[in-house]
Design a protein around this nucleic acid. Sequence first.
DNA 1: GCGACGAATTGATGTGGATCAAGGCTTTTT
DNA 2: AAAAAGCCTTGATCCACATCAATTCGTCGC
Lengths: 228, 228
Amino acid sequence: MILETRHSIHEILSRQPMFRGLAADELRDIANGTREYRAKKNEIIFHRGDAVEGMHVVVMGQVKLSLPSSQGAEKVVHVCGPGNTFGEAVAFLDKPYPVNAQATAESLLLLIPKRVLLDALELSNNLCRKMISSLSVRLHEMISDMETCLLRNSVQRVVCFLVQSAPESGDAFEVSLTASKQTIASQLNLAPETFSRVLGQLSEAGLIQVRGRRIAVLDRQRLIGFSG
Amino acid sequence: MILETRHSIHEILSRQPMFRGLAADELRDIANGTREYRAKKNEIIFHRGDAVEGMHVVVMGQVKLSLPSSQGAEKVVHVCGPGNTFGEAVAFLDKPYPVNAQATAESLLLLIPKRVLLDALELSNNLCRKMISSLSVRLHEMISDMETCLLRNSVQRVVCFLVQSAPESGDAFEVSLTASKQTIASQLNLAPETFSRVLGQLSEAGLIQVRGRRIAVLDRQRLIGFSG
DNA sequence: GCGACGAATTGATGTGGATCAAGGCTTTTT
DNA sequence: AAAAAGCCTTGATCCACATCAATTCGTCGC
């Protein structure tokens, strides 16, 4: 039974971007130390300030990372989907979690304890370079997020979001929102009301069509032009 | 002459946090590939969108990393002092620089080309782990910056900045600003006028004393209390 | 020490987006 | 199917901070 679980963790790990392509023996020690856990929708995984256990991998579901504010509000920093990891950066520092983590859907996750991760990195140069690359991507994303939040107005932020969520590269496309509008608004550092109003305004202008959580972008170029 | 320079580059590198403690032979290849350069005050080192050459190390002086906005304004993302590095994260991705880099003082820098850096990482697990740790620190700093900029008001941001700049851990201390007030204001995402006014307000309340670029914090606890 | 230019301050005014409030719509619960 | 609980939208109001404008201060070259 335990062997079964281990075996399956090994399987799952090997399919995650972070570990794909690693040799079986490199993975073995990690898989042995890894714990699988589940989180129900809205379940809190950890709070800002909690001691760091290790690196978390989202296998299925969705996890929201957010900064709590003094007045009970929160700013969503990142939304992690399948294949994404979180908590790794802070596992390398001797600091507690800087954000809250909460499942926004029924989720399946893996927890690779700090110690196991550090040991694995010491042995595998390959894994180290994957980690460097993953951290670099996150850093780049954060700069991009700062850019969106700090030097654009509300319309530009929403347009930016829509364009970045484009699945295809065509001039017309449809975006299905992967999170609630509140969550997206928070990521864009907008009040939910403002987000709603801006979407209304873009509809009004004939640039998009909102149907629940599906948004049809009719003309990418005109949309971009509208905000500049 | 060339040997002299190489030798000195090796010396300089070995004193940087990023490379301290590496074996001499691990450093040799890096030192051989590294170029030293100087930048005058206000000189632009690279623009957002330029092709990435490699990782830059500030040996002496100061470099400001900023995001340009459409209307010619800019948001300062980070200010690098001696021992800091920049451009490494983006060297691991196939993307151009996401920010502008400009010297804010006469500076001495090192440039480790992408290729040299990648080769060195492949050979040295030690260096890999230093890189991971450095990227993690940056990521953590960015979350902290987002927190400051996005979920605090102007007074809280300035108080936060003063407290974080504390050299000692006492209850009264003096902060010497390491950058112009405009630059600091931009880092805090405030207009220079607002920054000035907030400092005035804190002086008014008897919490700090501003004398040019030296700011005396009289009572850390009361200062923090004032903003909450 | 004088002139000049950029940095910083101070005052007056404007506005983008938050907040408060109320109602409609969806989804889950029973 | 009805009820409950969230989500989302729409409208009215407000305020924190930006912006514009005018001095003043500080520093550097000569």
